[in-house]
Design a protein around this nucleic acid. Structure first.
Lengths: 130, 130
DNA sequence: GTCATATCTCAAGACATGTTGAGATATTGA
DNA sequence: TCAATATCTCAACATGTCTTGAGATATGAC
């Protein structure tokens, strides 16, 4: 993911309604949800407001849409989310792998395991990264 | 990291100058850089422009500042970056751990290793997450 | 104290973003 | 074809963001 694309993605996520939409669609999985249901979940947002935010997310590449009958189903673009995470991690781990370890460790739930230490590279960065 | 804080952070990163500042400060490490040097690196941005963006980043918790002589040194807040990554991973891995694995794997540079598979939890999610 | 340096603060203007409401478009069923 | 449903598109408005330039503030050297 290049810088411009990351900026678009960050911008798309920097808004309450859109961030919630993404989280909702992530939990909804690959089947997706129709715009109307998403609007309901957003507290009964107007259709034009939904359309606006959904198109912003789609332009940013974070969701995709497909028509199914009368409805248009949206789903999260998981690869784009993964790339965004990777973009952030590259920035923040470049020379500071000890910073990313806690994030990965928190994910795994387990204590700072050997697995985590193995997953995050250690290029000999300082430990006082705070 | 809660939703509101994540939105602030995403908003702060959704701007070319600010994203570059963060990347610069990450590579600069814990010693940090003076505002003037950062401005130079941003193509000679005006001091008021720098001040604006740096204060945005500081409000979002992504950088911290301290005075040292005449200069004010800024450095990246690594824990905040790590929390942001964790926030994103939680969203995107909730039920879809196979999505986060590539990101972690890309970080480690190594092929999709056992270490990575161990670091990212597998709660029995579908594999067709795309 | 005075001066130079480094940075911040403030106000103004241009531009971008988010919301609303009215109306257009596509799909389905009677 | 007609009506109902689901969603999009557009224009208008309010609000927020970014840049600029002028001036204020803090620090250190003379």
């Amino acid at each position: 993911m290049d810088e411009a694309r990351a900026i678009d993605a960050f911008g798309a996520l920097a808004q309450e309604t859109r961030l919630r939409i993404v989280r909702l669609l992530v939990t909804a999985g690959p089947e997706g949800l129709p715009a109307g249901v998403i609007g309901e979940a957003m507290g009964g947002a107007s259709s034009s407001r939904m359309s606006f935010h959904l198109s912003q997310l789609e332009q940013a590449g974070l969701v995709t849409s497909r028509r199914e009958g009368r409805s248009i189903l949206y789903n999260a673009t998981f690869p784009a989310l993964a790339e965004l995470i990777e973009f952030l991690m590259r920035d923040c781990c470049r020379g500071h792998p000890d910073v990313c370890r806690p994030a990965v460790a928190a994910l795994s739930g387990a204590a700072g395991s050997e697995a985590v230490r193995a997953a995050v590279p250690d290029k000999g960065a300082p430990t006082s990264a705070a």
